[in-house]
Every structure is written in C-alpha cells, then in structure tokens.
Design a protein around this nucleic acid. Structure first.
Lengths: 135, 135
DNA sequence: TCTAATGTTCTAGTTGTTATAGAGCAACAC
DNA sequence: GTGTTGCTCTATAACAACTAGAACATTAGA
C-alpha cells in the first residue's frame, strides 16, 4: 500500500488521503481486515502532521470504511465484497453523482462518452480486485 | 428558472449556487444565450450576500459556462449542444469521477447498479433538454 | 448625450476550516 | 506491566466563507 498526497493541491490534505484510501479499497489493494499504518507513522512517512492523518481516518470511520481502536490501529471493515450499502449512503452518493454528471453534460461531453468513461473507470477497479496480488 | 440554496448545508453557498446552475444547463432549463438574474437581485431573492453570488458567477465564468459583462449581465455561453469540451476539461473531470465512483464501489454498490444509476441520471438530463418547454 | 443598470473592485470584520505543534490521557494486546 | 496506538486538549498561524458598505467602470437604451 502506497498512499500519496500533494501539498500544492486545492484539495485539503486530509481529503486527499481519505480519497486515496477509498480508491485503494475500490481497487482491491485494500480489503476488509487489512490494517492501515498508525497515524504517527503515516504522518511521518508523508511529511504531514499526525492530526491531519487522524482527521482522514476519522472521516473514513464515520463513513463506515474503517474501524479504529487503540493498540489495534486502523482496520478496513468494508470492501466491494461486503454487500450493498444502506439506502442513505446510496441516495446521498447519487445526489453528488448527479452534480458531477451534470458538469460533464453542461460542458458538452456526449452522454455516450460519459457512460463509456465511467464504465472504463469501473472496469479498472474490477480488474484491480480480481487480478490483485496480495502484498 | 428557480435556483435554491440551503443555508444549513456543509456545501458552501456559492458552490451550491454554482452546482444548481450547472444542473440547470445540463437539464436544458438553461441554454446558451439565456440570461441569469443580476447578482444583486439574485442575492436579495436568496437572502444572501451579493459577493457570494458574484463568487458563484465568477467560478462559472472561469469554467467557460457563463459570459459576464457590465450592463448586459450574466449570459450562458455553453450548453450540451455546444460541442465537446477541451481535453483538459474532460481529463480533469475524469479524475474527480474516479474518486466518486471509487466511493460507491468501496461501499459495496455493485458495478452494474452504479452504471444503472448513472444512466438514469443522464437520461433525466436528456429528457429535460428535449421535452423542455421554454419558460 | 445622459442615465440607469450591472459587473467589478476595494476595504473591513466575523466566523469557521486547515494544518501545524506539543503534551498527555486511555485502552488493550502481548 | 508495558509499550503501542487511538484519542483528547490547548494553542497558533494561515486561509476560506460570508457578510457589509461603498465606490468605480462599462454600456445598453432612452
């Protein structure tokens, strides 16, 4: 597992870190049961503050993707094989998806092209979790 | 054109307003050539500050969706019929789409279900622009 | 040409967010 | 027990969001 964030981005560091973990879970690089590095260690590795890592982990916990416990550390508790999410999660996601898709449509990207790109991204996640060699 | 924002949201007001305009363009409720309300008037209607509306309009201008001019006001200059966007816009969009799709996958939403929901949203935009009765 | 409408710019103040820093507490696997 | 690890607390600096008021610059239309 390699997690990278860039300091000179308009996206907050904790958000970038949270996004990378989500993508790693979607891509099969992280599965339910896997451990993430301790906050202090990951902070040192990334050259950022412990509290920033803490904030990312906490958000992932609130989203139901991580379980945090003292001494045990941060453990992934959901992955693509964990079954469908609750209705609340799905509808909330759909609201944000609507805005993102509207952007592409408004900019003139054809609907078929949008669907093609989404499918390609999803296929990337799928092959990632099937081919995925355990580290 | 009715634009609504909610004060008690975690999404900034100017971002909400910008999102609503993007969705209106995608849905065909706003087309190239249409005018938006003056900043002061829209601010008064929404009960928010003029500078907040200004910020939303300015972002839409930077995204190439609006043309702003004194006296003329804010005019839509792109819509789904304006042809495909530049490569930069498309690839930048795809980066954000990747993160959003990863969220759904990580939460356990099946790929087929994700595709179905995206298609449904896109169809909503399409029928919006075709059926769309002019106000 | 005048004028009113509209975007644009400026200063300013308040509140909340981001990120850093350091110190210590609390649980718990080993 | 003990050390590892998440968690909490205080503090500070920088930046973002929102509001407020005022004035400037352009320009369509009378």
């Amino acid at each position: 597992m390699i997690l990278l964030v860039e300091a000179d981005s308009d996206v907050p560091l904790y958000q970038q870190l949270r996004d990378r973990v989500v993508e790693a879970i979607a891509g099969g690089e992280l599965r339910a049961g896997d451990s993430l590095p301790p906050t202090r260690q990951l902070a040192a590795d990334l050259g950022i503050n412990m509290h920033t890592v803490n904030k990312a982990y906490d958000q992932l916990r609130r989203e139901g993707l991580l379980r945090l416990a003292r001494r045990t550390g941060a453990v992934v508790v959901r992955d693509p094989a964990s079954g469908p999410p609750g209705d609340g999660v799905a509808t909330e996601w759909e609201t944000r998806a609507r805005t993102l898709l509207a952007e592409a449509v408004a900019q003139g990207l054809p609907g078929a092209e949008i669907e093609r790109r989404c499918r390609a991204i999803l296929d990337g996640f799928r092959t990632g979790s099937d081919v995925g060699s355990r580290s």
